[in-house]
Design a protein around this nucleic acid. Sequence first.
DNA 1: TCCGATCTATTTTTT
DNA 2: ATAGATCGGA
Length: 754
Amino acid sequence: MSHFLNELNKEQHNAVIHSNGPMMVIAGAGSGKTRVLTYKIAYLLDQDIDPFNILALTFTNKAAREMKERVINLIGDADGRNVWMGTFHSTFAKILRIDGHNLGYPSNYSIYDSDDSKRLIRQIINEKKLDPKIYAPSFVAHRISIAKSSLINAEDYANNPEIISADESARKPLIKDIYKSYSARLKRADAMDFDDLLFNTYILFRDFGKVLYKYQMKFKYILVDEYQDTNQAQYLIIKTLAANTENICVVGDDAQSIYGFRGANIANILNFKNDYPDFKLFKLEQNYRSTKNIVNAANKVIAINKDQIQKTVWTDNDSGHKIGFIKATSDNEEGQLVANTIFEHKMNNQLPNSSFAVLYRTNAQSRSIEEALRKRNIPYRIYGGLSFYSRKEIKDLLSYFRLTINHKDEDALRRTINYPARGIGKTSIEKMLVAADENDTNLWEIINNLKKYKVNVNSGIIRKVEDFATMIKSFKADLKKKDAYDIARHIAISSGLLKLYREEDTPEGISRVENMEELLNAIKEFAEAEVENDEGDLASQGSLEEFMQDVALLTDADNEDEDNDKVSLMTIHAAKGLEFPHVFIVGIEENLFPSIQSISTRTDLEEERRLFYVALTRAMQKVTLSYAESRYRWGQFTITEPSRFLEEIDEDLIDKPKKASVHNVYHTTTSSSNKIKPGFKSLNKSDFKTEEIAFEASDTTDLQTGMQVEHPKFGLGKVIVVEGDGPNKKATVYFNAIGKKNLLLRFAKLKIIS
DNA sequence: TCCGATCTATTTTTT
DNA sequence: ATAGATCGGA
């Protein structure tokens, strides 16, 4: 019997050794979900299952990498390495490189990241002369993305009465046309966006039985992590792949579903029961990660949600510390207080930096935290956010690589053709684009046949365009001759990019050059590592093409840091699946967390609350919540209010001053909110000083139990009951000064504080 | 026509 | 902060 099995509790053990047939593991936070997955893979291998027959799908590269490491630790390198473990996107990208030709895609197709696709959508909106205010590119992009994740192509979209009427009532009836052009333009560039990687894999399996059969035979055991975050496309692909053997194991936690905004569907958990009536269910409810206080606080918070599968997460661990609380006057002070707290804690208890994590709702919040940590000389690492690969100079260079590999890649072509400036201006490019549209071909074909397509540009331009095309072709020829590093370096120099940034001669330019050098080094390392690992495997030579295939799907700077003793900074989304002894959750403010875009519907708000739950349950020993009373947002000074989530944590679990001083906590906000209009209003500092508006009542249609309110006469209070409807809507409010009071909302002037 | 300077809107969360 | 849009000079 495998030696590692006795490291599991009974339920985990049962889940691990149940290897045939459909099964689902519903696992509370910290209950050993990943552990079950990795041990299960190890167990399968131990039972002499061929590693090539196992497919394990995760959502992030980091999760995949960690799982791989752990499996290798358990059973050794040789077998562990051969299991297909990767993200949905990278796994399907690989399949499409091999078999996408069935759908008319070459193996060197480009992958457009969200920036690239948004840029293309913006171009199409411009070309169609649509108002970008009405057709906001990010809105359109999101709409298209959701459609694709639900397997609705441009044609189905246009023929779906529900979607069309929704678009019409949103006064954006032409999204269907943008979608159509967008798909055509992607295809013409031999490019796929992130959603296409799923969509096309689905089509490939649906329409090409032979291909499907091949992968069904290959992947006899399928394991899926974070199943609650799968979308329709992912769900159907998994189902199709598993149809033959039905050896499918999905692991998830409905309480941690936080990707609804990109089409994830919790109902997939319920569908599972319908698809596999004889499935086996395992529930992991014991939390090994966190203290009792943390588990209790998190349970209390998540219990407020209406939509959830019943389960009881409990722990045997100590009660531990109370939840810490920091109140700052500004975002900068918040950063300083967090940095100070980390510093003191670290010094007093001799803790490594790596035992701390700072989590936030939006990437923009990292700035003030970073600054403060830098001042304190505390090393940190940011995960996600503006990753290395999305910096301008890196994208510039990568665009040259992309264009070299796939000449049809229009986004890359447009980025590079006149950068550095070669005298090929906007007007000329515009003409070539029009020619491409009229002849239903791609830009590369046009720039190589300017005369044939009668593009009306002068001979000087023709020369310049031809020179550019010749250069790119020479790069392509080099791909076969030189190794990845040499060709990459050659492109950086010959394109003129390196020179361009070198001549800038500003600190900015210097750092850009350094970044490009770093990219070149990464390519060098990649090429060397590949040759080493896959010796004898003819598929892999560590080519530039392969490097580019990996890069497209990397988000966080995946170059592992030499020095790992750093404080981790990341969004809560990025923190899913991770754990840290000490966790700071910053910016617990209304309109930030929960996000202002998510407070109007229950579904959205509940997703935010699950996000809060995820954040709390990352901590092993201590959580500290912090909020700032003011914050710069979009360069604007804004007054903020504490988040409703603060109220949802049991008072005796949180270390904030009680009763007498709870008032104090809100006091400053209250007095300042007298001066500003309700809601999310931003002011300039000067406005703020002078403005002295009389009491302004809030709109009370959304008044809810538990809200903090203010009345011009009675002062501060808390809503206890809300009853009745329309004009007869009443509220019972407990005022700090005078006690309970029944108010008819139609008349009462109430200001909502939080 | 091209190019650079200056303005303007844009930011939720991720593959 | 950054990418795109806009406009005047060359």
